[in-house]
Each structure stands twice: as structure tokens, then as C-alpha cells.
């Protein structure tokens, strides 16, 4: 179970992630996007899901039982090749519904001091 003391806490990655042209093109092509020069609206998930999983690996959350329940993106500007991001993940809420834990994790991608994309992933940890 998620350690309840962690709700509201923010964890920031020590390492940064550099977005490559290849990564954008690969992601955009799979979705059939016509513009391969900027990241599609959902591209940030390929960074934030992995980053948040690393940042929250000692949180008590059982990642093997996690089902993705809900997802939201706020995009200040499109992600482009060469962007170097630091990811910070915050456990915004955690509640228990019929034995399932429902945890919402917000992850922000900053390039220098600019917030570029925020993602909210609602994860359902099955009982």
C-alpha cells in the first residue's frame, strides 16, 4: 500500500532526459501523425510514466498491480527534439475505493525553469 505520508510530496529526478528527433518521429509515426517535427499531444507519457515509476519506487505503491485509470495533459508548448527535461512527480491524492487504491500522480516536465508539459496519471492499484 502507498505510504499515506507521501501524499503531497514531490520527487524530482536527479538526471535529465533529452528528447531525440528519433523518439518523436517513432512515436508520431506509430500514431499516424503527419507532423513529425513536434511531439504529438500524448508524447510526454513516454517520459513521465517511466520517470514517475522510478521516482515512486519506494513509495509502497505496488506497480505490478497498477491499471491506468485516467490521464490528463496540459501542454504549454509542443515538445521538440533537443528539449532537456527534469521531471518532478507529486502524489496529489490517494484514496481507497472498494479495496482498490486510486492514486493520482502529477508529473511536470521542466526545461530549465520553464514548465512545458504537466501530466496527471490516475492509477488504480487493484486489490
Amino acid at each position: 500500500m502507498l505510504n499515506p505520508d507521501l501524499v503531497g510530496r514531490t520527487f524530482t529526478s536527479a538526471d535529465s532526459v533529452t528528447v531525440t528527433k528519433e523518439a518523436i518521429q517513432k512515436f508520431a509515426s506509430v500514431l499516424g501523425e503527419t507532423n513529425l517535427d513536434i511531439a504529438p499531444p500524448t508524447f510526454a507519457i513516454s517520459i513521465t510514466l517511466d520517470q514517475s515509476q522510478n521516482l515512486l519506487q519506494d513509495s509502497g505503491l505496488d506497480w505490478t498491480r497498477v491499471v491506468h485509470g485516467e490521464q490528463k495533459f496540459e501542454i504549454k508548448r509542443p515538445i521538440v527534439a533537443g528539449d532537456i527535461f527534469k521531471c518532478s512527480s507529486t502524489i496529489e491524492s490517494a484514496r481507497n475505493v472498494a479495496g482498490n487504491e486510486i492514486v493520482t500522480v502529477r508529473s511536470d516536465l521542466h526545461a530549465d525553469s520553464d514548465l512545458v508539459v504537466s501530466t496527471w496519471s490516475t492509477l488504480v492499484v487493484r486489490a
Binding site: E33, N35, P40, P41, E70, Q71, K72, I75
Partner: peptide
């Protein structure tokens, strides 16, 4: 992501500023 492509087709991917869904 495919629903996102539908939005990109409407506005261009650079003009999609919010996107949310439940699975």
C-alpha cells in the same frame, strides 16, 4: 494517442493544449 491524432488533424498538433480521458 489515436484520439490525440484526431485532435491534431483538427488543429495541428502544436495547437492541442489540453487533453484528458478515462480508460
Amino acid at each position: 494517442g489515436l484520439a490525440g491524432k484526431y485532435l491534431s488533424d483538427l488543429s495541428g498538433a502544436e495547437n492541442v493544449i489540453e487533453f484528458s480521458a478515462k480508460f
